[in-house]
Simulated assay, not measured.
Amino acid sequence: MFKHWVRQLARRFSLVFLAATICLFAGGAAHAAIDVNTADEAALTSVKGVGAATARNIIDERNKRGPYKDAADLAERVSGIGPKSVAKLQDAGLAIGPKGAAAAAPAKAAKAAPAAATKPAR
Results as ranks from 00 to 15, higher is better:
L18F: 13
F17L: 15
V47K: 01
R56I: 07
Y68R: 02
A53E: 02
I59L: 04
R56W: 00
A39G: 11
T54R: 00
A52Q: 11
L9K: 09
R12S: 12
T38I: 09
A30F: 07
C23R: 04
G49L: 01
A43R: 07
I22T: 15
Y68I: 04
F17W: 07
T45E: 08
T45K: 09
T54N: 01
D60C: 06
S14T: 12
R62H: 09
H31A: 14
L18M: 12
S14P: 01
V50L: 11
D70A: 04
E41G: 15
L15W: 08
V50C: 03
N63F: 00
A52L: 08
V47D: 00
I58W: 02
R12N: 08
R11S: 11
A53K: 04
V16G: 14
G27F: 11
S46G: 15
N63M: 07
A19L: 15
R65V: 08
H31V: 15
L18T: 14
H31R: 12
R65D: 10
T21S: 15
A53W: 00
A53F: 00
A20L: 15
Y68S: 08
D35W: 14
G27S: 14
A42H: 12
I59Y: 00
I22H: 05
G27P: 01
A29R: 14
L9Y: 04
Y68V: 06
A29M: 12
D70V: 05
A26Y: 06
R12Q: 10
R62L: 09
L44G: 04
F25E: 03
D70W: 00
N63K: 13
A55M: 05
L15R: 08
S14I: 09
V50Q: 01
L44W: 01
I59S: 04
D40W: 08
N37D: 14
N63D: 14
L9M: 10
L24I: 15
G27D: 05
D60F: 07
G28M: 09
V16P: 02
L18R: 08
G27H: 04
F13D: 02
T45D: 04
C23H: 02
F13N: 05
G49I: 01
V47N: 03
Y68L: 03
L18V: 13
L15Y: 06
T21W: 10
I58D: 04
Y68A: 06
V50S: 05
A26P: 02
R11C: 10
A43S: 13
L18K: 09
I59T: 05
G51M: 01
L24Y: 12
R12K: 09
L24P: 05
V36D: 03
T45N: 07
D35Y: 15
K64H: 12
P67F: 06
D40H: 11
P67V: 12
A29E: 09
I58R: 05
I58K: 02
E61Q: 13
T45S: 11
A42N: 12
I58A: 08
A43P: 01
L9G: 12
G28F: 10
A20M: 14
N57R: 13
A72I: 01
A29G: 15
